[in-house]
């Protein structure tokens, strides 16, 4: 489980300090603080943040909006970003909205608002912002599984997942080092997993084949790295025919 990398674009040190304190306190990794549009662009491409918090006004100009426009213009380059502003001015908001920000943060903000804004931005960016749906604590992206943990947000690389086990309404996500409980349906996760790597071996299990160390069909068992044992049911044995990974 990794920290989320955050880029802060803010020209007022007092404000950025407050923001950094909140982020650090909640286990985010701040990859940099940019005070201008130029710095922001440089940092954005060098530090590869997971999310950017952008003050609309930099040095008295709405350069934050320019930044949003610049990163949105490059396909595949855009990451979730949050606008930070002290103004509830309609004109500024209307203009900012054209860049499709993933969240707004209105100054003065408190810790919870910052965390919630980040959470919303991630959800929205990966198209899972369905406020009317069941409560969930995770967002799936092609590379990461974002998991809410104590108000904060963590990410788990999809490739690190050894297997996922369904337990009632939850999923247990097991990596080589850790184990998380995720409130998300197995089918929902499965949608975002690479079908060449992840296979269903049982109605309650999805395994990452690259982490499998041994398959014992006679015992209906798969041995995973880290000593985990996964059940293989007859119904799902077919997948073995399609795979040629035998170490």
């Amino acid at each position: 489980m990794d920290k989320l990398k955050v880029l802060v674009i803010e020209d007022t040190p007092a404000e950025s300090d407050r923001l950094l304190a909140v982020l650090h306190a909640n286990n985010f990794e701040v990859v940099g603080v940019a005070a201008s549009f130029k710095d922001a662009m440089a940092l954005y491409y060098s530090a590869t943040p997971d999310i950017a918090i952008v003050d609309i006004f930099l040095n008295g100009n709405p350069e934050g909006i320019t930044f949003a426009e610049a990163i949105s213009a490059v396909p595949g380059a855009v990451k979730p970003f949050i606008f930070l502003t002290s103004s509830n001015d309609r004109q500024i908001f209307e203009r900012a909205k054209l860049t499709h920000p993933f969240s707004f943060l209105l100054k003065p903000f408190n810790e919870l608002e910052v965390l919630y804004a980040i959470e919303m931005a991630i959800e929205k960016f990966y198209g899972q912002h369905e406020v009317t749906e069941e409560e969930t604590n995770a967002t799936v992206s092609p590379e990461y599984l974002f998991i809410k943990k104590n108000k904060s947000l963590k990410k788990v690389a999809i490739a690190d997942i050894v297997y996922i086990e369904v337990e009632e309404r939850y999923c247990n996500v097991i990596t080589q080092q850790e184990k998380f409980v995720v409130m998300i349906s197995l089918n929902r996760i499965a949608e975002y997993l690479n079908p060449a790597v992840f296979f269903k071996t049982h109605r309650n299990f999805i395994i990452n084949i690259s982490h499998a160390s041994e398959i014992i069909p006679s015992d209906n068992l798969i041995l995973m790295q880290g000593g985990h044992k996964v059940t293989l049911s007859d119904k799902y044995k077919d997948f073995l025919k399609d795979t040629v990974i035998f170490k």
């Binding site: 509830n88 001015d89 309609r90 500024i92 908001f93 209307e94 909205k97 919870l112 919630y116 406020v131 009317t132």
Partner: peptide, 14 residues
């Protein structure tokens, strides 16, 4: 009427 106003679905608890 200068304030930005945009009604959307909001989670009440957060």
């Amino acid at each position: 009427k200068q304030a930005y106003f945009n009604m959307e679905a909001l989670r009440l608890l957060p």
